[in-house]
Design a binder for these strands. Structure first.
Lengths: 132, 132
DNA sequence: CATTTACAGACTTAATATATCTATAATATC
DNA sequence: GATATTATAGATATATTAAGTCTGTAAATG
């Protein structure tokens, strides 16, 4: 069990966008180059963040991506969920009459992790803390 | 990102063994049947628990598997680590001079989850609570 | 000695992650 | 309006991992 590289790309890209201008979009070319990933692939990942409403894209010359929400609203969990999906990490599909106690424990554990990811915001790591 | 089915098999098997006799071993045939998995495949999974020192196997007629530790010593995390490995869920292999702040946050989150899994013992779910 | 059981390793199949490629649509600039 | 620039979509390809099978071997029982 591992977080995907796509999640890593998404997180790093978002951090860059938080530090960048909220007006002037940043091209995928530039975003990709600094992470050593191909622009087309990164673009595909970022499209999911667009659909999740976290960033917006501007096509055409001088286009690119920029935040669509306030920095403070963006949590780690938002980004991870947009890329990895929101389903539970552990799913017990056995049919043992009663509910599965093991699954209950696993879900509790996952919630501990999610709580931390939900309460940590990207802006907390940003260089450019114009917030507060 | 998902926990593997193998982890689910391992957890359920361990719970059965906790409820079973600490002396008389339970055959993989029986353990597999109740989970709807093939005996050879389950056997392969259980071998990893043997190597991790959590259970022991008895070959030959009337053989099988039984716990090698006290019930109380076995945590969820032990089992999960034996199957999934112990490496971090998130690994940032970019070289951005400094340490990766994103990775730090991810690691903290993982530790929250692990803490819960480490403090929850299999015996807590067992039917046969001869402990305490 | 024959039967029962776990173990080991090679192999297969299926699912998912990680891309790449090509064509299309939208926009700015000249 | 023409052209260059940029994101988007969809098909396809490759690599990695998970999930499972098969066969033979070793150990213990009776």
């Amino acid at each position: 069990m591992k977080f995907s590289k796509a999640t890593n790309y998404a997180l790093h890209t978002m951090l860059m966008l938080v530090d960048a201008s909220p007006i002037k979009p940043v091209g995928v070319q530039q975003l990709a180059e600094s992470q050593g990933v191909s622009p087309t692939y990164l673009s595909k990942i970022l499209t999911r963040l667009v659909k999740a409403g976290m960033i917006e894209s501007v096509t055409g010359a001088n286009g690119g991506y920029r935040l669509s929400r306030k920095k403070d609203d963006i949590t780690f969990l938002d980004i991870i969920h947009a890329i990895e999906g929101t389903s539970s990490l552990f799913e017990c599909d056995f049919l043992h009459g009663e509910e599965c106690l093991i699954q209950t424990v696993m879900k509790e554990a996952e919630e501990k992790m999610e709580w931390h990811l939900k309460t940590t915001k990207l802006a907390d790591l940003a260089q450019n803390k114009t917030t507060v």
